[in-house]
């Protein structure tokens, strides 16, 4: 299983590299255009691979399950964010090298006098810069999530289209009909991707709707949204995975929000998500009425006990609503009558806001489960753990005798907690491949 995933992972890296370098191979194939100075050709090459990477960003976010499965959706999203900076650096290096080695090209920056090929190139670069800036500082500039998604999509399409126009207008590397055909193919591939993401996929999602069964209030300002499939068998998922939810809108509107399943994977006729009231969308979950139609795209993610079936024991470390994917795993393990040793270390502000408190207590009779509640503000007379989930606390509860792949640890909660726990586990000598994090702040 591990070996297969690794091979798949390597395969997709090679495909990525191949597609990134494809433009250079196309240029070198057959009769080449007249060669120019080394720095100029290097600058052009960086521009070409930058454009290919920019176009490939659409593949990364198109949620193709086969690409995501060897890594998990979170790694693909981190990669999407990090590679965008590399892409920007490469594309920026393209004009910078020109300006350094041929300062007269600086006049191309004047949009009033510059030829159209330069206008298209400069505008593409500006679109990309704005796109990256609003993505990095979305929260600081208080750009609402859905509005950001719209701008993100529009700027991305603008940047790639303008960059393609730039190449066509320069036309230096279009010297044979074969190369023109290859470029056309590259462009069509990209247009197909756009059509798939914006039209085909939403169309398929619309044909598999879900209906709200009920919403249930939980402790800790959270609501459980229970859904059932309409006219189809529902969705099979691994416990701990997540799906993108569209509500009060059509799948074509691109207004989706990712949430972890909290229900057991053993039951696909009814799915549930437990959601904390945090933003505009999550605050409206409680207003959903039975019978309301919603859409789900999923499942995604690698955060699951099912990815590590050979472990002898599992440890779950949750903070607040980070319990949601853990509940899915605990419920599933209980339904499967799994009797492997489990530990749940669960941090909350106070006793009253411990989401699923009662159900977790009840699990102790069905599962071989040890629960460690950690409260920031414990009630009077509290005998359990208090404060935050620290290195010292983890040292007490994380099994010290372990071999690789023997004890798998799952972490989900607020970012500071997760960072602290990951650092502590690393200090405790836990092998990196044995702990897994689910971060809700991907976008």
């Amino acid at each position: 299983m591990h070996r297969k995933k690794t091979l798949q992972g390597v395969f997709w890296i090679l495909v990525y590299l191949l597609l990134t370098l494809a433009p250079l191979a196309i240029i070198l194939a057959g009769p080449r255009p007249e060669g120019r100075e080394l720095w100029r050709e290097f600058s052009v090459a960086l521009g070409f691979v930058g454009l290919a990477m920019m176009a490939l960003q659409f593949v990364l976010t198109a949620r193709f399950k086969t690409i995501k499965s060897p890594y998990g959706a979170d790694v693909v999203y981190y990669f999407h964010r990090q590679i965008s900076l590399v892409t920007f650096a490469l594309i920026l290096a393209h004009p910078l090298l020109l300006f350094i080695f041929a300062p007269q090209t600086l006049r191309l920056l004047n949009i009033f006098t510059a030829p159209w090929r330069a206008r298209a190139g400069v505008t593409a670069l500006v679109a990309l810069a704005v796109l990256i800036a609003i993505s990095i500082w979305r929260k600081q500039i208080k750009l609402e999530y859905n509005r950001w998604r719209v701008w993100h999509g529009l700027l991305a399409i603008a940047a790639v289209t303008l960059a393609m126009m730039h190449i066509l207008l320069v036309g230096h590397y279009m010297n044979t009909p074969l190369k023109q055909a290859l470029w056309l193919g590259y462009g069509l591939f990209w247009v197909f991707l756009l059509l798939y993401v914006r039209l085909i996929k939403p169309f398929l999602l619309q044909r598999k709707p879900y209906e709200v069964v009920k919403t249930v209030q939980e402790r800790g300002d959270s609501w459980t949204l229970v859904l059932k499939p309409i006219g189809h068998p529902g969705m099979s998922f691994m416990p701990g995975q997540f799906a993108w939810l569209t509500a009060w809108a059509s799948p074509f509107s691109d207004q989706e929000h990712p949430f972890s399943f909290s229900s057991s994977a053993a039951c696909t006729e009814q799915l549930s998500f437990t959601i904390k009231e945090r933003g505009d969308f999550t605050r409206k979950i409680k207003e959903m009425s039975p019978g309301q139609r919603v859409y789900l795209d999923g499942p995604f993610g690698a955060f699951s006990v099912d990815r590590h079936p050979h472990a002898n024991q599992y440890v779950f470390i949750a903070g607040g609503i980070g319990i949601s994917p853990m509940m899915s795993m605990l419920r599933t393990l209980a339904d499967r009558q799994d009797q492997r040793p489990l530990t749940l270390i669960y941090g909350n502000r106070d006793w009253e806001s411990v989401t699923f408190r009662e159900e977790i207590e009840a699990f102790q009779s069905r599962l071989n489960l040890k629960v460690v509640h950690v409260l920031e503000n414990p009630p009077e007379g509290w005998k359990g753990e208090s404060g935050l989930i620290t290195y010292e606390l983890l040292e007490r509860y994380v099994p010290s005798e372990r071999n690789r792949n023997d004890c798998e640890i799952f972490i989900c909660g607020p970012k500071p907690m997760m960072d602290a726990v990951e650092t502590a586990l690393s200090r405790l000598g836990v092998y990196m491949g044995d702990y897994h994090s689910e971060r809700f702040d991907l976008v």
Binding site: I13, L24, I27, F42, F48, Y78, V86
Partner: peptide, 30 residues
């Protein structure tokens, strides 16, 4: 930890593409 996988992937791919771009430039330049 998973963030680190993606960071290393990004660095790896960034370095490889710059190297290949340079090789391209050497092959293509006069």
């Amino acid at each position: 930890m998973r963030q680190r996988i993606s960071t290393w992937l990004t660095i790896l791919i960034g370095v490889i593409t710059v190297i290949f771009s340079f090789i391209f430039a050497v092959l293509q330049s006069r």
